[in-house]
Write a protein that binds this DNA or RNA. Structure first.
Lengths: 148, 148
DNA sequence: TCAGATCATTGAAGTAACTCAATTATTTAA
DNA sequence: TTAAATAATTGAGTTACTTCAATGATCTGA
């Protein structure tokens, strides 16, 4: 996002984040996915299945947005939606074997991008960057950072 | 955007960058500016005046985009465009005293956001984060990365 | 002088994302 | 049994960003 040379760390972070996002988007786009679908798959791969509600909170998107994400993933056979027998208003989303394969591709694509981005950092520096980034206060609402 | 909990450093960086961008955008928006206009002002404040061409390269935007940025800034009296006497096709862009004041406000707004974001980091950690970020390979074309 | 290139500008078009209200089906509570 | 609440969905509307082609003014080289 065009910061050029500035000594503002905030702008540096914003710019690098945007570039990273573009790289990841491009890498996933080659596989017919978006970052959001990739993250959805990654979360589903961890848990196997989730309620659509839980996925909503995890992805922090509008319900209507999640619907189209899942529509696409389901159309491609990567996830399956079925009614929750305990509450038929709800959907349970489950990743399919094809979805797990796609998720592996996603991880791989992101890992490749990361290798490029962080090629000039050794393992310790990468760990340090991760630690420092994790301490950046990102929750908009409360400064307690790790609350709610 | 929406990475939730993942161990992918690339996604973490993308997410934090996006959030930082939103914060800065909001802070500048309160002053009728966008990040892009702010960066344009910051660059002009450093150099005093620049050719529109140089500004193009610095901001890495389409010429038609820069035009509307400069239109806004000029309308608000923050910059002035005049023809380059040496080549009347070209414009020279100069920051005004009002522009310098606005730039100071921009710096201040960004600094405030940074204080919030990095509140949990001490000075040394901030310096370290800056150093590590600066070593992340961002230029798609250049740095030996993809070579040519 | 003329042809082609360059610079700034304009305008159209496309894209992607988000928000919001309304709808349907279902559950819960009174 | 009925009213209210909830889950997922649909669709409309908005915003912001981006690209691209066309234009007028100006410069450069033959």
């Amino acid at each position: 996002m065009a910061t050029a040379d500035t000594d503002r760390l905030g702008l540096l972070l914003a710019r690098h984040g945007a570039i990273t996002n573009i790289r990841i988007r491009d890498a996933l786009g080659a596989n017919g996915l978006t970052p959001r679908k990739g993250v959805a798959l990654m979360n589903l791969a961890r848990t196997g299945r989730m309620s659509q509600q839980a996925l909503l909170e995890t992805l922090e998107v509008d319900p209507s947005v999640l619907v189209v994400i899942l529509n696409d993933l389901e159309r491609d056979g990567l996830v399956e939606r079925r009614r929750d027998p305990a509450d038929r208003r709800r959907h349970i989303v489950e990743i399919t074997p094809a979805g797990r394969k796609a998720q592996a591709v996603v991880e791989d694509a992101i890992a490749t991008v990361e290798r490029e981005l962080f090629a000039d950092l050794d393992d310790e520096q990468v760990a340090q960057l991760r630690l420092l980034l994790s301490r950046v206060r990102t929750s908009i609402n409360d400064p307690a950072c790790t609350e709610a």
